[in-house]
Computed example of a mutant assay.
Amino acid sequence: MTWGLWNSWMLPGLWITIQVTLYSAAVALVVSFSIGTLRTSRFWIVRFLSGTYFEIFRGASALVMLFWFMFAFPLMFGWQLVPMWAGVLALGLTYGAYGSEIVRGALAAVPVAQREAGIALSFTRLQRLRRIEIPQAWPEMVPPFNNLAIELLKGTALVSVISVADITFAANLVRITTQDSAPIYTIILVMYFVLAFFITRGMRVVERHAKTRVGQAPPRGGGLRGLLSIGSRETVEADGVVTTGGAK
């Protein structure tokens, strides 16, 4: 593959993929917190409507939803979406439905006593969410949100079917031009891996910061080093008693 093809197609395609990922993630985050918190409402009609949204978008194919926003939406509402924004809406609303379940589950895991304390202090529902529930639930949301962000990144390849020039679309054009399938698709595999790696590292920083704010400072070591450090601090006795720091 020549530098001209790389500079003309692959690098712009990479930038388009990053943009679609960021914009879709922003939409998904808003939807996640909006629908997730509404599903914890004490009013059954609110729970019913938000639950209906969740079931529809969770059960629908992201690819079909993409086609719907691109081709059916203009016929029904008379407003033609730009292909990139049709993809952003389809991905953001779909993955936002999955994210809403993460938010709902994390909020439900907050101890009841914490919510009762907010009620005793005469906090409104919004104040309890902002000051008590979300700050405690946020550290539990970050790891599944990390997985969801990576799934969203990989899902951006779907926008290539509506002629959005992301790296998958660009790679296919370069493949047609050069007839080199193996090198081209190997390159975009590496590119997706690198993007996913940076998302993971960024989310780990967010997780560490979130846990520190609620007094749950996580260990900085990971992988084999983390396992070895844990093993050096804990000794399991024969009778099942765990001692730390080598004390017996």
Rank of each mutant, 00 (worst) to 15 (best):
R104Q: 05
A113T: 15
V174N: 09
L63R: 03
G222L: 14
I16D: 00
I199D: 02
I184G: 01
V46Q: 10
L66Q: 03
V31S: 08
L93W: 05
G231I: 14
L195K: 05
T177H: 13
I199S: 04
A170T: 10
G105A: 14
I56N: 02
G118N: 08
R208P: 03
G99N: 09
V88R: 13
F198S: 10
T200L: 12
A90H: 05
A157F: 04
L49R: 05
V112L: 10
F193L: 13
R125V: 03
V214W: 14
A171D: 01
S41D: 06
K211Y: 07
E101S: 04
R213W: 08
G92M: 08
P111I: 13
D180F: 14
F57K: 03
A86K: 13
D166N: 12
V242A: 09
K154V: 06
V206T: 09
R201C: 06
T94F: 08
V174D: 02
R39W: 06
P111W: 14
L152F: 04
Q127A: 09
L29I: 09
L195A: 08
L63C: 00
S50C: 11
V20Q: 03
Y95H: 10
R125Y: 09
P111V: 04
V164Q: 01
G118H: 05
A106Y: 11
T186P: 03
Q136P: 10
A108M: 12
G92S: 05
R204D: 06
A72F: 12
L227A: 00
I16Y: 03
Q114G: 00
E140V: 15
T2C: 07
P83H: 05
K248T: 05
M84N: 02
I102N: 03
T235G: 02
P143N: 07
I45Y: 10
I16R: 11
V242F: 05
G155N: 06
A210T: 09
A157H: 01
S163G: 04
M191G: 00
A60P: 10
R130L: 06
T40S: 06
M10K: 09
L93I: 12
F71V: 10
I187G: 00
V30Q: 03
R220S: 04
T178D: 06
P143L: 11
G246F: 03
N147G: 07
R208Q: 10
T94R: 02
R208C: 06
E140A: 15
V174A: 06
G105W: 13
M65A: 07
T17E: 03
I134A: 02
G96K: 13
F73V: 04
R128I: 03
E237Q: 15
W85R: 06
T244Y: 11
L38V: 14
V164E: 01
W85V: 10
S50N: 07
T124V: 02
A117V: 15
P183S: 04
Y23M: 09
L227G: 01
W138V: 11
I150H: 06
T186I: 11
F48Y: 10
A238H: 14
K211W: 07
F67I: 15
V206W: 08
F67Q: 01
T21K: 09
N7S: 12
Y185T: 03
K211C: 12
F198I: 13
G59W: 10
F73Y: 07
V46W: 14
R220M: 12
S24F: 01
Q179W: 11
L228G: 01
